[in-house]
Structures are given as C-alpha cells and as structure tokens.
Design a protein around this nucleic acid. Structure first.
Length: 259
DNA sequence: ATGTCGATACTTTATCGA
C-alpha cells in the first residue's frame, strides 16, 4: 500500500496539478494539508472521478486537512483530542481497509509556531504535547499506523540548508526538536530516514529568494510509522517533480510503500 | 539586501499567515 502526504497550499488553486500527480503516482492513500477551504467546498467530485474516497476537515481561509483513499475509509475523527476549544482544522484520522488488512492513517498539519516569542509558539508546543498523548494511545492498539503530514519540524541539521540560521526558528528550536523526539521515542520510525540517509533531502522550498533553484529547502513533511507499520516498510521517497512545475505548492509529496 | 504566494475584505490595495 502506497501512502503519500502533500501540503498543497490551497487545494482549489492547485486542483489540476494535484489531480495530475494523483493520476501518475496512483497512491492508495493521499494525506492533504493546507487545503484552505471549508469542508463543503472541497473539490470532492474531482477526486471521486479518479477513484478515491474522500474525508475532509476544512475551515475557511486557513489550514484544513483531508484523506483520499482508493479503499474504504472508516472510523474518521476530525479533531486531535485534548482541547475542545481548538477550532483550527489540523487533524483528520481514519482507518483504511484494503484486502482484509487495515491501516490507520492520520493527516497532520502541525502548527508553524513562528514567531517563537508569541502565543503561536505556545500553541505549537501544546499541540505537539496533545499529539504525543494521542499517538501514545494509538500505539497501545498495536496496529499498522501511519501519522503523516506537514510537521513543521526540521528534525536534524542535515534536514535544512543552513542550520545555523535556523536555530531560533520555531521549526528548528531546541524545544521543537525535543518535542518531536519525544513523539518518535514513543516507538515511531521516521519512514524516510529508515530508508535514506542522504542529507539535503527536502520536502519544502520557500517561494522567496529563489529557494527552489538554489535548493535551499527543509525536510518538514514526515511519515511516522508504528512498529507494525515499520515492519512492512519497503520504500520511502520524496517526489520533487511537482515543485518544479507551473504554479507549484511550496511543498512536494513524500510517500511510503508498505507491504 | 532583496526576492513569494494565497485568501480575504468596509477590495482594486492592505493584511494576515506561511
């Protein structure tokens, strides 16, 4: 089963490019982030026409996540537990059932958190603590589980073009990386790093300052695998091609193949 | 040093978020 994740930075603006990629890559599951539309205005039909089931958690203007799946989606939850007052659409989870096997998949849009001296960063760390608690609860089920998405976390210095210039950024601060490691250390495997040790393997390039042309990128989109999922991991790779096309998202898809 | 993009609204440019 091929599971991909892609922050598309507005699904409506990007619909043609996203559909092109889906047709070519044929993921079984695609986790979308930053759809930037309300649930009711999500282009469901376009993806159903490509053979996908759709589960969406949207909001106006910002954020928004979705699951696309060739196989049935059940047991959908659209909020990260732990704060009933959190109105930001950043989490959707469902169970994908294919050929008698089940995979629980979450599409995650973790808060950016910049600037770090504001409540935005406090919210990011609180969100990560909630994610850790929920991830621990999910791990106790001993299922094939994939937590995929835009984590807005640069795990290691080799995951950013110039780490020295990012030490105070919310994506790379000591506290951010420590919170990410706490989640990993519950028992998750970073799918990409289990397969590929190459530095400068990026999933995001800023629109500004020719970042794409200069390969000044970040690795911030991740697939975290439960032990049961990691045992089935065959492949994980970043598909850079969409980033070089017309009207691209600033992120590009990353995908993993599970046996 | 600078450079971008998308959504929104008391819109035709400014503001926010990234």
């Amino acid at each position: 089963m091929r599971i991909a994740t892609w922050n598309v930075n507005s699904v409506k603006t990007r619909i043609d490019g996203v559909c092109d990629w889906v047709r070519a890559a044929q993921p079984d599951v695609l986790c979308l982030q930053e759809i930037k539309c309300e649930t009711a205005s999500f282009p469901t039909q376009a993806f159903e026409d490509l053979g996908y089931n759709v589960a969406v958690h949207g909001q106006k203007s910002y954020n928004g996540v979705a699951l696309l799946s060739k196989h049935p989606i059940s047991d959908v939850i659209t909020a990260l537990p732990g704060d009933d007052g959190d109105a930001q659409a950043r989490y959707i989870e469902g169970v994908i059932s294919a050929d008698g096997a089940a995979v629980r998949v979450a599409s995650i849009y973790l808060p950016n958190g910049n600037p770090p001296d504001t409540e935005k960063y406090t919210y990011k760390l609180a969100w990560m603590a909630r994610l850790k608690a929920h991830a621990a609860a999910l791990l106790s089920h001993e299922e094939v589980l994939v937590l995929a998405g835009d984590y807005n976390v640069i795990p290691q210095p080799e995951d950013v073009y110039n780490p020295a210039s990012w030490t105070e950024d919310a994506l790379f601060r000591r506290e951010t990386r420590a919170a990410f490691r706490e989640i990993i250390h519950l028992g998750f495997t970073d799918a990409f790093r289990a397969i590929n040790a190459a530095p400068q393997s990026y999933t995001f390039w800023d629109y500004q300052a020719g970042a794409w042309q200069k390969n000044k990128g970040l690795r911030i989109d991740h697939l975290l695998l439960s032990p049961e999922a990691a045992a089935r991991l065959n492949t994980c790779d970043i598909d850079k091609s969409p980033r070089g096309r017309e009207k691209p998202s600033d992120h590009t898809p990353i995908w993993a193949e599970l046996a």
